[in-house]
Design a protein around this nucleic acid. Structure first.
Length: 918
RNA sequence: GCCCGGAUGGUGGAAUGGUAGACACGAAGGACUUAAAAUCCUUUGGCUUUACGGCUGUGCGGGUUCAAGUCCCGCUUCGGGUACCA
C-alpha cells in the first residue's frame, strides 16, 4: 500500500469532526493547560505559508500536553474588525461584513487542511454581537471606575463621588488627566454638569481634548503604536498632530503594574525589554523655577538633578500653556511667528529635519538652588506631551541642550571634573562634580540623591517617576468597529444600560464620513436612544476586540458574563501564547492592561493574562528571478546571463523548483511569455534568488494549500518546523521539503511493502529499544524547549536507524507513532489504527523514556593532545578516571603522538574526553 | 544615538565549555528500469597526500581555559525595535 496522504488526511479530518476529538470541557480531574495562538485578521489574500508556522508549533505543544494527561484548551477565532475590509468597502461598496465572512470561510478552509486540534465549538469573531457585547461591557466598566494610586487599583467612581462629597479632593491620589483641587463644599455646590465634567478627569475610560495622531487619508485618529515614523502602520499614510475631543483609556495609570508584572511572566528578554522601553519608567525629580518679576512657577522634570548648577537656560515646548504668559511684549511678534512656523511642520518633518530652532521668550527664571537668573526659551525640541513640557537646560551634559546652546551662543558650564565640552556634551552619568556648590566632590550618583534630598527639604521640588507610556486613544472615526455603548445628553456622555447590550452596529449605505465631516455612523438611521439622545458616532479601535478575547474562549457561549467565575477559575490564564513580535507594544500592552483592570474588578483570578509567550519568527519570501535578454523574448539561465545584456524579472516561485524553472509552466504563466525562448545551462533554466518580504508583487507568496495538495499536511507541518528554530526569521523555500516527505514515506515503508502489512509481535532487541528510548528522550526534551527543528531530525535519525535494522516490530513502532502524533497527526492516526487500535491516538499516553535502555557498556574516548583530537579509544563506560588515564598513556598511538616527551598534565573527563598536555 | 538579536560548508541548519558541520537539501558516482519517476547504496568543509595521514577551518582582533562556535574584552557587519522622553 502506498502512502496516500490525500486520502488519509481527508479520512482523519472527518473522523476528528464526527467524533468531536478536539472538543474540550472543564474536567476538574485533570490539570488544565491553555495554549493560544494570536488570532488572525482574515485578510482577503488568505493564509500564506508564514501564517501557520506559529499555529503548527502551538498545535504540536497542545497535542503533546494532551498526551501528557492535561486537559488542553486550544481555541481559534478571528480578529474580524479592521481597516482593510473597510477600505475595500469604500472602494467597492461591498459591506465589510460580507467580505469578512467570505475571508473567514476561506481561512477556515485553509486551516482545516492542516489538521489543527482546535476546539472550533469555541470559535469567536470580534465582529459578532455576542462577542462585542463584552467589549462594550468592559468599556462601560472602565467608565465607571477610576484608578486609585495609593491602592494601585481600579475603584468605583461611586466611591470617589462619596469621598468628594465629604472630603473634596483631600487625600485622593488618583490617575487623572489634570490635577484638580476642591473642597467637599465646592463639589457639592457644583451642578450635575460640572460634576460630570470633573469625573471625566478621573474615569479610566474618559473623554478629553487631546493631542492625537490624525490620519487624514484614513479619516481617523490612531493610537501611538499604530503610527511609526510619522506614518500610519497600516497603509503608510502621513499622520499629523491635532487636538480633538476623543475617548481614551487610562492605560498610563497601570504603568507601574504593567512594568512589575513583567517580572512574573515567562517571556523572552527581548520582548520584556521592548515593553519596558515602551512603558519607559524614568526616575527623577520635579523642580519649580520661579519667573523673575512674576508669580508664575515653571515645573520641570529631570533625571539629572545633580546638574542643577549647570542650568544656563530653560526651554518650553511651543504648545505649552504658559508660553503666552511668559512672552514679553518686545518678544511677542517673534514668538508668535515661531509658534506659527512650528505648527505648520508635521511630526514627520520635525523628525526628518532636526534643525536647531527656537526663540527667546523675553522672561528670565531663577535657579531655585543657585539663585542665578537664566533666560527662558521656546523650542520644538521640547515635547509638550512628556514630563511637564518644560526643561531645565544643562548644555554641558545633554547633547540636545548642547546643540541649542551652541546655536544661540548660550553659556555651557561643565560640571564634571576633567570633562571636555569644547566639541560635545558629556552625557555619561559618571564622574565627580565641580562648579556645583554643595555638591562639589560628590559622584554623579551621590549628587543626584543629595539634590533630591535638598529640594524636598527646601520644598523646591520632589522626587518623581515619569512614564513614557501614554493613554490609549480609543475613538476611531470609522465604520467597521464596535459601536461605543453611550449617548450624549446636553453634550455630556452617559453609558447605556447594560441590559441594552449589545449595541449592534447599524447598517449604512456608504462607508465614508458625512459631508459635514462626521464619522460614517452619522449616516445610520435613527442612531439614537429610545429617549432620542444621540449615540456616539465613533467606533472602537482594532485592539478593543483583541484585548480580552482569550478570556472569552474559556466560556464562549455565556450570555450573562464575559466569562463565568467557574470557567475562569478553572482555565485561569494562558499557559502558552504563540505569536509574532509585532504585537509587543500594541496588543500585548493593551490586553495586559485590560486584564489587570478586570482583575481589579474581581471578574477574573489572574493578574497577568499570558504566562509564557513564544514569538515565532517571520517567514520571509524567497523570490526567484529570470533574466530576459533586452528587446527579446529570450530568457537566459543564471550563470550565462553575464554574456548578455539582460533585464531581471521576478518569476512566480510556484513554477520554480530548487531554483530550476519549469519552462512549460512559465509559458502558460502569463500571456506575454507564451512564445518565450530559453538559453539553458546543462539543459536547465536556473533562476536567481533573493530574500524579500512575502508579497504578491514579488510573486513569492506560497500558499499552504499548494503544499498540502502536493505533499500532504503532515509534510507541511514537519517541514515548517524543520526549516529552523521557531523564533528565528527565515525565508521560505521548498528546497528541503522532499527530504521531509521522504522521511514519512520511509516511516510508511516500515509498515507496508506493496500490499503486505509488515508489522509483527516479535520482541524488540536491546539495540532497537535503545533507538526508541533515545528518541523519546530527545523528543520530550525538544518539545519542552520548543526546539521542533531538532525533533524532526531526531525522528529522521530514528527511522533511518530502524530502517537499517529492518525493524517492523509493534513494540517499537507503536510508541514511535504516538511520539510522532503531535507533529504529523494524520499519518500517526492511520498507522496507529493499522496497529489494531480503534480509538484516536490523541487519547494515548506520551511514551516515557526508560534510561535503562540507554546505558552504554563502552565509550569511544577521543584522545586529544593539547586539545586536538588524534584518535579514539573504545573503553568500558564504567572505567575509572585513573584507569582511563593509564590505558590511554599505555597506548601505542599515544606514544607516537608524545614523540618521546613526558606529558605535563593529563585531563580525563569520564564519559567525555581525554586531553594530554605536552 | 540607544536597546535587543544574529553571523557556522554550495544551501537550511546541529552542537549541556569536551571528537565542529548532526539531520536535510543540493551535487557527484553507482544499483534497479527499455526509459523516466520513485526507491536503494556510496561520497561530499577547504587545502594537501597514491595511500595512511597531515594542515586548516565557526565574521575580525585580543583574552580566559588542559580544552572556546560556545565564556570575557574590543571591533566589523546584517536584521529587528525605539527615539529630540530631559
Amino acid at each position: 500500500m502506498e502512502y496516500n496522504f490525500g486520502q488519509i488526511e481527508q479520512k482523519w479530518h472527518s473522523f476528528w469532526k464526527n467524533n468531536n476529538t478536539y472538543k474540550t470541557d472543564i474536567d476538574k480531574n485533570k490539570p488544565k493547560f491553555y495554549v493560544l495562538d494570536m488570532f488572525p485578521y482574515p485578510s482577503g489574500a488568505g493564509l500564506h505559508v508564514g501564517h501557520p508556522l506559529g499555529y503548527i508549533a502551538s498545535d504540536i505543544y497542545s497535542r503533546y500536553k494532551r498526551l501528557k494527561g492535561f486537559n488542553v484548551l486550544h481555541p481559534m477565532g478571528y480578529d474580524a474588525y479592521g481597516l482593510p475590509a473597510e477600505q475595500y468597502a469604500i472602494q467597492t461598496g461591498q459591506h465589510p461584513e460580507i467580505t469578512t465572512k467570505k475571508n473567514i470561510a476561506r481561512y477556515r478552509e485553509q486551516l482545516d487542511k492542516i489538521g489543527f486540534s482546535y476546539d472550533w465549538s469555541r470559535e469567536i469573531r470580534t465582529c459578532e454581537p455576542d462577542f462585542y457585547k463584552w467589549t462594550q461591557w468592559a468599556f462601560i466598566q472602565m467608565f465607571n471606575y477610576y484608578f486609585n494610586i495609593k491602592n494601585q487599583k481600579a475603584e468605583t467612581i461611586t466611591s470617589l463621588v462619596d469621598w468628594f462629597k465629604t472630603k473634596g479632593t483631600d487625600g485622593i491620589k488618583a490617575s487623572v488627566t489634570e490635577e484638580l483641587n476642591f473642597t467637599a463644599q465646592e463639589w457639592n455646590d457644583k451642578s450635575e454638569r460640572e460634576q460630570q465634567e470633573i469625573l471625566l478627569n478621573y474615569r479610566i475610560a474618559y473623554l478629553a481634548d487631546l493631542k492625537v495622531n490624525w490620519c487624514a487619508d484614513l479619516g481617523t485618529v490612531l493610537a501611538n503604536d499604530e503610527v511609526s515614523e510619522g506614518l500610519s502602520v497600516r497603509g503608510g499614510h502621513p499622520v499629523e498632530q491635532k487636538v480633538m475631543r476623543q475617548w481614551s483609556l487610562r492605560v498610563s495609570a497601570y504603568a507601574q503594574r504593567l512594568l512589575d508584572g513583567l517580572g512574573t511572566v515567562d517571556w523572552t528578554d527581548s520582548l520584556k525589554e521592548t515593553q519596558k522601553n515602551w512603558i519607559g519608567r524614568s526616575e527623577g525629580a520635579e523642580m519649580t523655577f520661579r519667573i523673575k518679576g512674576k508669580e508664575l512657577p515653571i515645573e520641570v522634570f529631570t533625571t539629572r538633578a545633580d546638574t542643577i548648577y549647570g542650568v544656563s537656560f530653560m526651554v518650553l515646548a511651543p504648545e505649552s500653556d504658559i508660553v503666552k504668559q511668559l512672552t514679553t511684549t518686545e518678544q511677542e511678534a517673534e514668538v508668535a511667528n515661531y509658534i506659527a512656523a512650528t505648527k505648520k511642520r508635521t511630526e514627520r518633518e520635525r523628525q526628518a529635519d532636526r534643525r536647531v530652532t527656537g526663540v527667546f521668550s523675553g522672561s528670565y527664571a531663577i535657579n531655585p538652588v543657585s539663585g542665578n537668573e537664566i533666560p527662558v526659551w521656546i523650542s520644538d525640541y521640547v515635547l509638550a506631551g512628556y514630563g511637564t513640557g518644560a526643561i531645565m537646560a544643562v548644555p554641558a551634559h545633554d547633547s540636545r541642550d548642547y546643540a541649542f546652546a551652541k546655536h544661540f551662543d548660550l553659556p555651557i558650564i561643565p560640571l564634571i571634573e576633567g570633562c571636555d565640552v569644547s566639541k560635545d556634551s558629556f552625557d555619561a552619568k559618571e564622574g565627580v562634580l565641580i562648579n556645583s556648590g554643595f555638591l562639589n566632590g560628590l559622584t554623579v550618583k551621590e549628587a543626584i540623591a543629595k539634590t533630591k534630598e535638598y529640594i524636598t527639604e527646601k520644598e523646591i521640588g520632589n522626587v518623581k517617576v515619569n512614564f513614557r507610556l501614554r493613554d490609549a486613544i480609543f475613538s476611531r472615526q470609522r465604520y467597521w468597529g464596535e459601536p461605543f455603548p453611550l449617548y450624549y445628553k446636553e453634550g455630556l456622555p452617559y453609558m447605556l444600560d447594560e441590559s441594552k447590550l449589545p449595541l449592534e452596529l447599524p447598517s449604512i449605505d456608504k462607508f465614508l464620513p458625512t459631508e459635514k465631516g462626521e464619522p460614517p455612523l452619522a449616516r445610520a438611521d435613527n442612531w439614537k436612544t429610545d429617549e432620542g439622545y444621540p449615540i456616539e458616532f465613533c467606533t472602537m479601535p482594532g485592539f478593543a476586540g483583541s484585548s480580552a478575547y482569550y478570556l472569552r474562549y474559556m466560556d464562549p457561549k455565556n450570555e450573562n458574563a464575559l466569562v463565568s467565575l467557574e470557567a475562569n477559575d478553572y482555565w485561569r490564564n494562558v499557559d502558552l501564547y504563540i505569536g509574532g513580535t509585532e504585537h509587543a507594544t500594541g496588543h500585548l500592552v493593551y490586553s495586559r492592561f485590560w486584564n489587570k483592570f478586570l482583575f481589579d474588578l474581581g471578574i477574573i483570578c489572574e493578574d497577568e493574562p499570558f504566562k509564557k509567550l513564544v514569538n515565532q519568527g517571520m517567514i520571509q519570501g524567497r523570490s526567484n528571478f529570470i533574466y530576459r535578454i533586452k528587446n527579446s523574448n529570450t530568457f537566459v539561465s543564471l550563470n550565462l546571463k553575464d554574456q548578455y545584456e539582460t533585464t531581471t524579472l521576478h518569476v512566480d516561485v510556484n513554477i520554480v523548483s530548487n531554483d530550476i524553472l519549469d519552462t512549460d509552466a512559465f509559458k502558460n504563466w502569463l500571456p506575454e511569455y507564451k512564445n518565450a525562448e530559453f538559453i539553458l545551462e546543462d539543459g536547465k533554466y536556473i533562476c536567481g534568488w533573493a530574500v524579500e518580504k512575502m508579497s504578491k508583487s514579488m510573486y513569492n507568496v506560497v500558499n499552504p494549500d499548494v503544499i498540502v495538495e502536493k505533499y500532504g499536511a503532515d509534510t507541511l507541518r514537519l517541514y515548517e518546523m524543520f526549516l529552523g528554530p521557531l523564533e528565528q526569521s527565515k525565508p521560505w523555500d521548498t528546497n528541503g521539503i522532499d527530504g521531509v516527505h521522504r522521511f514519512l514515506k520511509r516511516l510508511w515503508s516500515l509498515f507496508y511493502k506493496e500490499e503486505n502489512f509488515l508489522i509483527n509481535d516479535e520482541k524488540a532487541s536491546a539495540e532497537e529499544l535503545k533507538i526508541l528510548h533515545k528518541t523519546i528522550k530527545k523528543i520530550t526534551f525538544d518539545i519542552e524547549n520548543f526546539s521542533f527543528n531538532t525533533s524532526v531530525s531526531a525522528f529522521m535519525i530514528c527511522v533511518n536507524e530502524l530502517f537499517a535494522l529492518k525493524c517492523n516490530k509493534k513494540e517499537i513502532l507503536e510508541p514511535l507513532v504516538i511520539l510522532l502524533a503531535p507533529f504529523a497527526p494524520h499519518i500517526a492516526e492511520e498507522l496507529y489504527q493499522a496497529l489494531g487500535n480503534t480509538e484516536t491516538v490523541c487519547d494515548e499516553s506520551f511514551p516515557i523514556c526508560n534510561e535503562d535502555f540507554l546505558k552504554e557498556s563502552a565509550f569511544n574516548y577521543p584522545i586529544s593532545f593539547n586539545g586536538k583530537v588524534r584518535f579514539t579509544l573504545e573503553l568500558p563506560a564504567d572505567m575509572s578516571k585513573e584507569e582511563v588515564e593509564k590505558v590511554a598513556l599505555a597506548n601505542d598511538q599515544t606514544a607516537k603522538h608524545l614523540e618521546g616527551k613526558t606529558p605535563k598534565k593529563i585531563i580525563v573527563v569520564p564519559g567525555k574526553i581525554v586531553n594530554i598536555v605536552l
